[in-house]
Amino acid sequence: MQDDSVLLNVENLVKYFPVRRGIVIQRHVADVKAVDDISFFIRKGETLGMVGESGCGKTTAARTILQLYRPTSGVVEFEGTDLAVTKGKELRLMRRKMQMIFQDPYGSLNPRMNCGNIIGEPLIVHKITSGRGEYRDRVAELLTTVGLSPYMASRFPHEFSGGQRQRIGVARALAVRPSFIACDEPVSALDVSIQAQLVNLLEELQAQFDLTYLFVAHDLSVVRHISDRIVVMYLGKIAEIANRDELYENPLHPYTKALISAVPIPDPLVEAQRERIVLTGDVPSPLRPPAGCVFHPRCPIAVDDCAGVHSEGLSNERGVPELREVSPDHWVSCIRV
């Protein structure tokens, strides 16, 4: 653990999903290496952004941290407790402190429950309120907090728009007064004009309730806006970690550079002058990640050593680049940096 200000510390976290073949006798034939040995920490009160393309393991990482998936190996230390070895009742108590907001505002709310019961369910599960009156007041308070009206409690999810549904998801996460919320692509399913409303809401709530966020998204411009520090993931591994401004002004990993240059900017004059790094090829399958640096087959600056040759201090014995701190708080895993 670095110091007191760290709320969540993730060390060598690994999550493999086994692939099995056979009907009666199931043989374990391979692993999908969704999250493959990642380490980072989140400080109290900050927002850590996590970006990467689909399939890079960012959602799995968030879910594994909350123990919605149990990690294959590694340590997830939350306020000093290792969640990876915490079970049952103890884990349930820890869950009161950490909540999640999901990507899909349509799939993440039970269509048969009304909005009040959706928000109130955590209150009952965790036995937070006693008595009908207190329960109702708390639900009404939560609805107001996220910008909805208490009378909406009796409505069902289909009566709300996408942005309003996502607000319900936020209210549900806030119900147990958590200190940490993992937001998994909370705005990507929303329209542009509504996205900004929700991003502002999340920032207001953070200030109001002293929240710490893990903000998972693929949209770099939104992540830059909301985050203090940013983790860039590629194929189950961390490519780069840096402070927000440092990452955008001085990206070091070739993948981060490509990712930033690929984001379109709504201004034709700026666009015409931008140099764009267009990556060739697709993200490889996490079933068979490339040897050495996982990015080397698509990397514009790759050299022979990137394909799995051990270099002292830069990569491990399998030639996988180490995540090194190249300047204070700026970590990168690339032997060419």
């Binding site: 996205q195 939104v222 806006h225 927000r244 709504p266 201004d267």
Partner: peptide
């Protein structure tokens, strides 16, 4: 309403 990468935050 969209944050822009090329402008200060």
């Amino acid at each position: 309403s969209v944050p822009r990468l090329d402008e200060p935050r």
